[in-house]
Design a protein around this nucleic acid. Structure first.
Lengths: 256, 256
DNA sequence: CGCGATTTGTGCACGTCTTCACAAGCGCCT
DNA sequence: AGGCGCTTGTGAAGACGTGCACAAATCGCG
């Protein structure tokens, strides 16, 4: 965007762009670019081409260029992107210039692991509180933090100005915890419990379900197996139904 | 709920599976539907409308119907879907009728948690082996499984016929482990390490990066803050950011 | 036996995301 | 200074995903 009005930042000095309205798909990839850029910086690169960066991030180079153009970042034609500058810009856009405080609720198996995961600390977050509803877990110390009772959430929230809540409880407890988080003003939640959370408008929930990931893989595994079993006759997969005997079967198996 | 007949279901007694060619987006939602269906079954429902199921799964009802229609499943107009039958069909499509063996590599913080996560066992998977490259961890027993050295992978693979590999190592070790997994014939990998894996054609990799999820939330948090700070200015809200050093932008308008 | 209430399955239009292909811009070399 | 090779930024086209709205199908009932 050279002379277009879109980003239209009159008098922008050039170091840091404003906060544009990014496509979700782009937002989801920015962290990946950021990680790749940090690797490149550590390896001593000062500039990187879209081709190189896209390879490091595992995406298509045109997609990468479009993503970066959305955030108004400038590379230099014929040269590439300045690694340090790009890191700065992406971190700014992602809001990582401040170290956000995270409250982790549920210190079971998974919660323990998350509490000890240093990937959070190294990528812009600070686990500010550990909470659990189980009284027998309260008081335990993990990684220098003492587990407090979840009912202390209001106090914790004001002490630490929690920006993000992470739910690592069993599914049965998750909605209740979500409600409590929302009640103390948390508007971003990362949910590891296998259940759907309902939250008011304006609260963002992202869900990570480990079993679902495996099930998706299982589908593809199943699919690959069924394909190699049948010497693909060029037809649609549907024709490969257990056609022979399935007399009572679907009316649609032989569709089209 | 095990002894349901299979009305209309393809006679799938060990016969060659017939997998329609589902859109990825649909595949990604099927596990969610499945979970919701199990809940409904436990609650005693025998049938469920697309409206009810979609609410339980947190999606739009038209989308749900289209998804189910893709896998050729039948509901009954005027009535809804037979819960037990639908469970059976989705489990079949996802390849969950067999309990797939999972090898978990990397028994650190996260690996421990995954090894103890019962959501895997309860949703169609069996953790068949724990592996680590660190000799000091080999021999440790977790949840009834003994940690073996990652170099034993070939032996393990034949013993257990591993279908899926889970990588929970540090990023630096992940590519090597992936290569080892591929070498023993694993074609589905779930990667928790924050790095891009390169694998041969035909191998599926899914990635879960906990920090990325937080960073995406951080973006939206940042965005919400910048919007509430500048009420209703339309496009020019974007221009309100400091051009040079962003040292002064860190205060959020939202307190409490 | 037909009618109305209900719910599925889907055609269609719309929006988002991806990818290609290429002009415009930049630095370097002669 | 001018040309050349390289790389970005982006228009346009196509693939994909979503959601509406409605016809078709089924059940229950009088």
């Amino acid at each position: 965007m050279s002379q277009h009005r879109q980003p239209g930042a009159p008098g922008r000095a050039g170091a840091v762009p404003a906060l544009p309205d990014l496509p979700e798909a782009t937002v989801a990839r920015l962290p990946e670019y950021l990680r790749a850029l940090h690797n490149l910086a550590d390896a001593g690169h000062e500039t990187i081409s879209s081709e190189g960066l896209s390879a490091a991030a595992g995406v298509n180079s045109a997609k990468l260029r479009k993503d970066l153009s959305h955030l108004g970042s400038y590379g230099t034609r014929g040269v590439g992107y300045d690694v340090a500058l790009l890191i700065e810009q992406i971190e700014y856009v992602l809001g990582l210039t401040q170290r956000r405080a995270v409250a982790l609720v549920g210190v079971g198996n998974l919660g323990h692991a998350l509490a000890g995961y240093d990937g959070f600390a190294s990528r812009g977050f600070r686990i500010a509180a550990l909470l659990d509803a189980d009284a027998s877990r309260v008081g335990e110390e993990i990684n220098g933090l003492v587990v407090r009772h979840v009912d202390e959430l209001p106090a914790v929230a004001t002490e630490e100005s929690i920006a993000i809540g992470v739910i690592a409880t069993p599914a049965a407890a998750a909605q209740r915890v979500a409600d409590q988080l929302v009640a103390v003003g948390v508007t971003s939640i990362l949910n590891f419990a296998p259940c759907v959370l309902s939250v008011p408008e304006g609260v963002d929930v992202r869900k990570v379900d480990l079993a679902i990931e495996l099930q998706i893989l299982s589908f593809h595994e199943h699919r690959k197996a069924s394909l190699t079993a049948l010497p693909a006759t060029g037809g649609s997969a549907l024709t490969a139904l257990p056609g022979g005997l399935s007399a009572t079967d679907t009316q649609e198996a032989i569709g089209t």
